[in-house]
Design a protein around this nucleic acid. Structure first.
Lengths: 188, 188
DNA sequence: ACTCCTTGGTATCGAGTCGATACTAATAAC
DNA sequence: GTTATTAGTATCGACTCGATACCAAGGAGT
């Protein structure tokens, strides 16, 4: 079961997750609702859709639809329609949601990480990223990595825009190259 | 916000937690129900009570009561009464629950940890434990550490029993010294 | 064109979490 | 012996969550 401490590591992460879940009941939001807001704040415009959100959080589309309805009712999320594909909805955060994110309870966990040494933080980041990659691959889930680390990212390709996406054939702002993307495929 | 990568670490752990939550919808149980079973499997007899469970999971007593009622209805948990304090209930797992725990979805995460090197696992364990300690202390929460690492643990103290608890004044079996305890206070 | 199929999203249902509040019973403090 | 305090339950309302059924828009093949 817990051979080589692998089980212990899983238990530690789970306990941490529980604690964060307990933190996330703070304020006017529930844990998943915080996660939705965080995702929408970090995702680029192609990825701010119910489907991508569901893939990121590992939820069925029904659940996503319901949760978005609640957040829309609270005035944190707005839904528009994608002009290129009128089935898709484009999600965006309200100003109130952005204000709320400045009191994100995730900061409590970040504060605990700040007690580690610089070197410990670097190692921890690398190790967690490695575990996450393994886990996501095993579940055939998209990595949702950063746009500029993608094989379809072309730096300074278009005229009039800093960068360009070769997959979606759209110009990219500098800021967007740092956002996470639904379609991201890491460079081979 | 994400200074020194501390925010990134928090985001990684949260993402991991989400993934595990998604895993934990497997089988006949819900994520929290799995956590209840895991706790009851790891806690010593003094700690298998609704109050200790609530403290461990960070839930209010009402929620714990409700969740236990569901698990009792499914035949995974039994409730008895503590003869020393008839307000307390003593929880125990059924054989069926123990069988179920052999298919614990947490094993998926443990498998991902097994992809790390021995050295990486040791470092990760230490770092996570350190973060957890900081976080628990900040929330004034009990550590729920192992019985034998407690200041009230007396090795080979009693006659007829391997060990002894100086706080509760009860003999302890060898096996129990490895269980987690509600009252545990690490050695100074 | 026209069907067939896939994809993106919604509506509704039932089980269950979760905090809040109000309650009961057993113990502890004085 | 009265008065806290503590352990647990009961009930309520908001919400998550998967499952199922459904609808609309786009795509593929003929």
């Amino acid at each position: 079961m817990a051979n080589n401490g692998a089980g212990h590591i899983a238990a530690l992460i789970e306990r941490m997750g529980r604690l964060m879940n307990s933190d996330a009941h703070a304020g006017a939001l529930l844990p998943v609702q915080w996660e939705v807001l965080r995702y929408l704040a970090r995702a680029n415009r192609f990825s701010r859709t119910p489907a991508a959100l569901g893939a990121y959080l590992g939820l069925t589309k029904g659940t996503v639809s319901q949760t978005l309805r609640v957040l829309e009712g609270k005035g944190f999320v707005c839904k528009g329609v994608d002009p290129r594909d009128r089935r898709r909805r484009r999600l965006s955060l309200s100003q109130e949601a952005r204000r709320l994110l400045r009191e994100d309870p995730l900061a409590e966990t970040a504060a605990a990480a700040r007690h580690l040494s610089e070197r410990q933080r670097e190692t921890l980041t690398g190790t967690l990223e490695s575990m996450l990659r393994v886990r996501l691959a095993a579940r055939h889930r998209q990595p949702f990595g950063m746009c500029r680390d993608c094989r379809y990212f072309a730096r300074r390709h278009a005229v009039g825009a800093p960068h360009y996406c070769l997959l979606l054939k759209e110009p990219l702002a500098e800021e967007e190259s740092l956002a996470i993307c639904h379609e991201q495929r890491p460079v081979a």
